[in-house]
Design a protein around this nucleic acid. Structure first.
Lengths: 137, 137
DNA sequence: CTTGACCTTGTCACCGGTGTCAGACTTTAG
DNA sequence: CTAAAGTCTGACACCGGTGACAAGGTCAAG
C-alpha cells in the first residue's frame, strides 16, 4: 500500500511514517516510480512503534526493541527487551519521584500563603492534592 | 557584586545569570566599564528564580511570578501567582497520570511475558512496582 | 610593558519527533 | 493538454535552558 493509505489506516501522519522509514523502522519496498510500497504487516508494525513511543522510548530504543516482538504481537522474553522495559520503568519512577517532590514544593508554597486565608479554599486545595498525588489511579 | 561572585555564591553559572539578566529577571546596574553590578538582593532573587525553575516553570512564567514575592521571600497571596502555581500543580498531576498509565502499559507488557516465568522474578517486579508508584514519597 | 584573569556581546549546538514548506516527479481525471 | 492530487527528497522550525566558543574590552599584578 502507499504511504497515504498506511497513514490513514494507522492514524499516523505521512511525515512520521517517512521518518520511521528513514530510521529503518519500517520495511518498505519501492515501486518503479519510487513510491514506497508497504506490506500489510506494516500496519501492525506501526502500531508497535507507537506503543513503544508512547511509553517514552525514543526511536533508537524502538529500533532496538522491534526485533524482539514475537509473531503474536508480544515482546519476546529476550533479556535485552526485558531489561530495556525495566530500565524505562525505573526512569519513569525516578521522574515521578521528582515530580512528587516538585509538587510538594508547590503545595508548600501555596499552603504557606493560604495558611492565613479562607479555610474553605485551603480545604479544597488540600482535597485536590490528596486526590491526585497519592492514589495509583 | 560582579557576575562571577554572584555565580559563586549562588552556584549558578555566569552563563545562566547573563541569560536571566537578558530576560529581565535580574535587576542589574552597569559599572562605567560595562560590567554588570548586582546588588546583594540578587542572591535571594536568583534563589527564587531557581526555585520556580525547579518546579517546572519556564523563564516567562518565572518573570511573571517574580513580582509576586513578598519581602519575606514568600509568594504574596496575589491571585495571579496562586493561579499560576495551581495551574502548575494541575499540569504535574496530568503528567503523573500519563506516566502512571505509561507505567501500567510497561508493566503489562513485562507481566505478560513474565506470566509463565519464575514466580520469584515476577514477585520482585511487582514489589518494585508497588514500592514506587503508590506511595506519595 | 606583558601576562593572565575576568568581563562583554553574539552565535551555534543540543534534544527529537513532528509540522511545514519548497521544488520536482508521477499518476489520474477531465 | 492541463489541472489536481499524491509522492519524492531535503531542509528549516520548534522548545528552552545551558554549554561552549569567538573576538574583544578591562584591570590588577609582575
Amino acid at each position: 500500500m502507499l504511504i497515504s493509505e498506511l497513514a490513514t489506516r494507522t492514524g499516523v501522519s505521512s511525515r512520521a511514517l517517512r521518518h520511521y522509514d528513514g530510521c529503518g523502522l519500517l520495511p518498505s519496498r519501492r515501486r518503479s516510480n519510487g513510491y514506497r510500497d508497504f506490506p500489510p504487516e506494516a500496519i501492525e508494525r506501526v502500531r508497535r512503534i507507537r506503543l513503544l513511543l508512547e511509553v517514552g522510548l525514543d526511536l533508537v530504543a524502538v529500533a532496538s526493541l522491534l526485533p524482539c516482538f514475537a509473531e503474536d504481537g508480544r515482546l519476546a522474553p529476550c533479556e535485552p527487551a526485558q531489561e530495556r522495559l525495566r530500565a524505562q520503568i525505573r526512569s519513569i519512577d525516578a521522574s515521578m519521584a521528582t515530580m512528587r517532590e516538585t509538587r510538594r514544593m508547590l503545595v508548600a508554597e501555596l499552603g504557606a500563603e493560604l495558611g492565613a486565608g479562607e479555610p474553605g479554599a485551603t480545604a479544597g486545595l488540600v482535597a485536590e492534592v490528596g486526590a491526585a498525588s497519592g492514589r495509583p489511579a
